[in-house]
Write a protein that binds this DNA or RNA. Structure first.
Length: 434
RNA sequence: UCCGCGGUAGCUCAAUGGCAGAGCAUGCGGCUGUUAACCGCAGGGUUGUAGGUUCGAGCCCUACCCGCGGAGCCA
């Protein structure tokens, strides 16, 4: 006994002229007396099913009449090409079985407010736009894995529960951990990736990370996914080379494989076609000059705000890599520039079209004494970092890495207004349901 | 935490301090090519909560709750 579908909508082009059975849900229904148009969705696509009163039994016609939005049903009919129809194919219905009649469905084919949609996120994910976004997200995830797996990287999973603040800066989600006191949800696996790089050469992690910041903007989630490669014997230039090759690969892959989805999202793909190496590379100091030229009253030494990033990003038609930030605004583990102690060998990649920072990375401080000094300067407890300092005591090497935020990348590629659509169930400061 | 905007039917929104309405959704009826179909009829309300002003409050005032947009914060 098996009930799994033998046919899916995306494959109907191979079944023209044949009779097939499809299973799915009613997306929409239009009726004109003795003819009914049912739009079926099955997760792979949409197809219009035409029910003529003269072609089917009375029971089948009544069943088609009874179907409510999002009712599940099985439908049998002959596939034909039909340019007037969504997807270009149509089903001439001969049989129809209702599987489950849906109650009055809250998300009607009219506009809705964001609060209502998020409250119904478990149902909202069924709508055409959300399906397209989530398919792009899945493709981005696969592209990320494919890229690193085929470039000599080994997947190296860091812990989610950590005893200390990796960066020592941002606010973490705290929990009681048995008799060991407080533990925290990770904000970054980076320090652990460094130990992996010294074991395996090139490693990456890919998973959820958590920030308890009270950020209330379209660019922030409290739970988001990050991919973090870390490479032994890479300097900042090597790091930037990798980052731009990586971004180019992800964007071009999605562009090639998700045409249908990007079309549904009405994304201007010409903007994405530009995303080819080399990306512009400017120093923080040069970025500050751009801001000043644009009339922004900006003090060298401060970090860029969202508006600043947008202004800088507007200058370029592809991601811009800003390197060598002031030491004070960056994390303790970043290596100082031997040629200028005021800056560190860090790089942020700013996406175009105002999507902001998608990558933050750096060459790491590999000198034990300098790293100890930076930990002291940041007022961090050295005892928490003894294991990390061991990485400098036992065969330290120059190494680098970066982190890329998945939802920001998906938002940029899809052209979304808000990060909350780029993940199935967004977690935000004032929202942890459904 | 701060600034701004908002909360009216299941949903999206109207309503000069004076009878609480429309579209969609739902139900019933009509229509053999619809594309957020269309046409007719019907049901559907503690106007976020509490208090106040007033002959009379959805509308004005006070407090609170919730949400949205942004700032700050944030590898």
């Amino acid at each position: 006994m098996s009930i799994k579908p033998k046919f899916y909508i995306k494959d109907l082009k191979d079944n023209v002229g044949e009779e097939v059975s499809l299973k799915g849900w009613l997306y929409n229904k239009r009726s004109s007396g003795k003819i009914k148009f049912l739009i079926l969705r099955d997760g792979t696509g949409y197809v219009q099913c035409v029910v003529f009163k003269g072609n089917v039994s009375e029971e089948v016609f009544d069943a088609a009449d009874k179907l409510t939005q999002e009712s599940s049903f099985e439908v049998t009919g002959k596939v034909k090409e039909e340019p007037r129809s969504i997807g270009g194919y149509e089903l001439d219905v001969t049989d129809l079985k209702i599987i489950s009649l849906a109650q009055e469905y809250p998300i009607t084919p009219k506009e809705h407010g964001i609060e209502f949609l998020i409250d119904n996120r478990h149902l909202w994910v069924r709508s055409k736009r959300q399906v397209a976004i989530l398919k792009v997200r899945a493709r981005v995830v696969k592209a990320i894995r494919d890229f690193f797996d085929s470039h000599g990287f080994t997947l190296f999973d860091p812990p989610i529960i950590t005893p200390n603040a990796c960066e020592g800066t941002s606010t973490l989600f705290e929990m009681d951990y048995f008799d060991l006191g407080k533990a925290y949800l990770t904000q970054s696996g980076q320090l652990y990736e460094e130990s992996g790089a010294l074991a395996l050469g090139k490693v990456y992690s890919f998973g959820p990370t958590f920030r308890a910041e009270k950020s209330k903007t379209r660019r922030h989630l409290t739970e988001f996914w990050m991919v973090e490669p870390e490479m032994a014997f890479y300097d900042l230039d090597d790091d930037m080379d990798l980052a731009e090759e990586f971004i180019e690969y992800v964007v071009q892959t999605v562009l090639n494989d998700c045409k249908e989805e990007l079309n549904i999202l009405e994304r201007d793909t010409s903007k994405l076609e530009n995303i080819k190496r080399p990306f512009p590379r400017i120093s923080y100091t040069e970025a500050v000059e751009i801001l000043k030229k644009k009339g922004v009253d900006f003090q060298w030494g401060n970090d860029f705000g969202g508006a600043d990033e947008t202004l800088i990003g507007e200058e370029f038609d592809r991601p811009v890599m800003i390197h060598r930030y002031p030491t004070e605004v960056k994390a303790f583990y970043m290596k100082r520039d031997p040629e200028n102690e005021k800056v560190v060998l860090a790089v942020d990649v700013i996406a175009p079209e105002g999507y902001g920072e998608i990558i933050g990375g750096s060459q790491r401080e590999d000198n034990l004494d300098l790293l100890l000094q930076r930990i002291k300067d940041h007022g961090l407890p050295q005892s928490y970092f003894e294991w990390y300092l061991d990485l400098r005591r036992f065969g330290s090497v120059p190494h680098s890495g970066f982190g890329l935020g998945l939802e920001r990348t998906v938002s940029w590629i899809c052209g979304l207004e808000h990060l909350r659509e780029a993940i199935p169930f967004p977690r935000m400061i004032y929202r942890n349901t459904p």
